[in-house]
Amino acid sequence: MTQLVADNETQGLSGPKRSVSIGVRVRNSRASGVLLVVLILCAWELSARTGFVQSTNWPPFSTVMATLVVDVTDGELLPLILSTLWRLARGYGIGFAIGIPLGFAIALLRPVRLVVRPTIELLRPIPIPAIIPPLIFLLGLGDSLKLSSIAFATLFPVVLNTIAGVMAVEPIYDQVAKTFGVSRWTALRRVVFPAALPFVLAGLRTALGLAVVVTVVAEMIVGQDGVGYYLVSMQFAMRAADMYAAIVLLTLIAYLLNRAFILAEGRIIRWTRLREASGDAS
């Protein structure tokens, strides 16, 4: 398949000249991007080492990384990371398990749409962390509070993208299903769902980012464990290096989750990418 795409006129005719220039450009852009990151980290390192920023709470980057390695290897952080990930997975899972069917129901069933849509539009603009304090009253300080918040954060992008995806399904697909006498359920499963899937996955990706944020915020506000709780504890304990280590760790986790998602997404809807590459516009 990849071969066929490469054989496509638009790419096949370009020859070596174009591929070199693209290669150079990609390398340049990558290099310049990485360079800026390195520069910022160097500035951090230098500002702490030279005393440009004088504070016991401003450890050099190298110290932070060393602390991170120690904290992870001595086993202090590992259970916290796992509890954060497990919490995230459950909250996110609940959110999308509700969100996808709800999105389909709203898009496909007019009565559901009429009843539910205004509520969704009203709830949507609420900043998610703002619901945590009232939820504490309702759910106490336990895990159900955190899971609800994460699920709530996940729900909206998933529902809204699913609706958009189902609405964007080509009307002709319905007719194709109809002319072959396919049942409504089969049409939903084999036609509407795959047609809407790219939108649904985009919603899930947005939701994943939000879910990470809300997981950490929830742990920071009402934590007994998790990396968010650890982060706040280290701040209270004035252990700046450990605090920054936790932040670096969270950054890494969020980054890796997003990369993993993009990878999985690319596999699940491989046809969209290949189709774009093949130059098929429709």
Partner: peptide, 25 residues
Amino acid sequence: FQQYGKSLLPWMSVAENVMFSFRHR
């Protein structure tokens, strides 16, 4: 259909598209 480009389901291979017409009945 007139619009063959749109009436074929792009996430299915050629064979899957053809089988879609009878497999579910």
